[in-house]
Lab assay of single mutants.
Amino acid sequence: MGMPNRKYADGEVVMGRWPGSVLYYEVQVTSYDDASHLYTVKYKDGTELALKESDIRLQS
């Protein structure tokens, strides 16, 4: 078993793309699913969504 190939840690605050949009919002990573390679993130309004790594970026 190798290390999970994840870029962002639980609790890390990053920018997540809103689905169907080009806009990124501040989100907190809450979990990562090794099987689906999706991150569960929480937006400031409390919305929780699963995002692909390509829809997440570090805060500038």
Rank of each mutant, 00 (worst) to 15 (best):
G2Y: 04
M3W: 12
M3R: 15
P4F: 09
P4I: 12
N5Q: 13
N5W: 07
R6L: 02
K7V: 09
K7P: 03
Y8Q: 01
A9D: 07
A9R: 11
A9Q: 14
D10Q: 07
G11S: 04
E12N: 05
E12W: 06
V13W: 15
V13Y: 14
V14P: 01
V14Y: 03
M15S: 05
M15L: 13
R17L: 08
R17D: 00
W18T: 06
W18S: 06
P19A: 06
P19G: 06
P19C: 06
G20V: 02
G20E: 06
G20C: 08
S21G: 11
V22L: 14
V22M: 14
L23D: 11
L23Q: 11
L23G: 09
Y24T: 02
Y25P: 01
E26L: 13
E26W: 11
E26H: 08
E26N: 05
E26T: 11
V27C: 15
Q28H: 07
Q28N: 05
V29N: 00
T30R: 08
T30D: 05
T30K: 13
T30I: 15
T30N: 07
T30C: 12
S31H: 11
S31C: 06
Y32H: 02
Y32C: 02
D33Q: 03
D33A: 03
D33N: 09
D33P: 00
D33M: 03
D34C: 09
D34R: 05
A35Y: 12
A35H: 11
A35D: 11
A35M: 13
A35R: 12
A35G: 09
S36N: 11
S36H: 08
S36V: 07
S36I: 05
S36F: 07
S36M: 10
H37K: 14
H37W: 07
L38G: 02
L38Q: 07
L38M: 13
L38W: 07
Y39G: 00
Y39K: 00
V41G: 02
K42A: 07
Y43I: 07
Y43H: 09
Y43R: 10
D45S: 05
G46E: 05
G46M: 03
E48F: 14
L49A: 09
L49N: 04
L49F: 15
L49M: 11
L49H: 13
A50F: 15
A50C: 14
A50H: 14
K52I: 08
K52D: 09
K52A: 12
K52V: 09
K52C: 11
E53C: 04
E53S: 05
E53N: 04
S54I: 09
S54A: 11
D55L: 03
D55F: 05
D55W: 05
D55Y: 05
R57S: 08
L58G: 13
L58M: 13
L58E: 14
Q59L: 15
S60W: 11
S60Y: 11
S60E: 12
